[in-house]
Design a protein around this nucleic acid. Structure first.
Length: 112
DNA sequence: TGGGTGACCATAG
DNA sequence: ACTATGGCCACCC
């Protein structure tokens, strides 16, 4: 019992490992941490990421469809898109362009 | 212990 | 494109 929410910390750690200009999905993170952990847990963690001391690039995490589903949780709906575009990611109609190409899978990149 | 919630995912129509 | 449904599982009360 190192923390009251180990899962959250693990999730945040993975999210911080996402390279700039890349994105991943909630399901991919959940799968990487524990093959099959519901993606909802990841989304739930992102909801709490706001309270973390360290910055968590939650804007690099989208759903499996590449849609900015969590944009409303950044304080302002346009902030998430703004952050993504700032990193060179094109966003159109709340969806990431070339999502398939920009997709960063922790299970593939952080695998051993 | 049990119920409600959720920034999800998959399938069906 | 859309809504509906079931499953998923940690969190909070």
């Amino acid at each position: 019992m190192k923390s009251k929410s180990d899962f959250f910390q693990l999730i945040y750690d993975v999210v911080r490992e996402i390279p700039k200009g890349r994105v991943t999905s909630y399901g991919a993170i959940g799968k990487y941490l524990s093959s099959g952990k519901s993606a909802r847990i990841v989304g739930w963690a992102m909801n709490a990421a706001h309270s973390q001391k360290k910055f968590v690039p939650a804007h690099r995490v989208v759903n499996r469809n590449g849609e900015l589903t969590g944009k409303h949780h950044f304080g302002h709906p346009k902030l998430m898109q703004k952050l993504l575009e700032k990193e060179g990611i094109k966003v159109k109609h709340d969806k990431i362009l070339n999502f398939k190409k920009l997709f960063w899978d922790p299970a593939e990149e952080l695998k051993m």
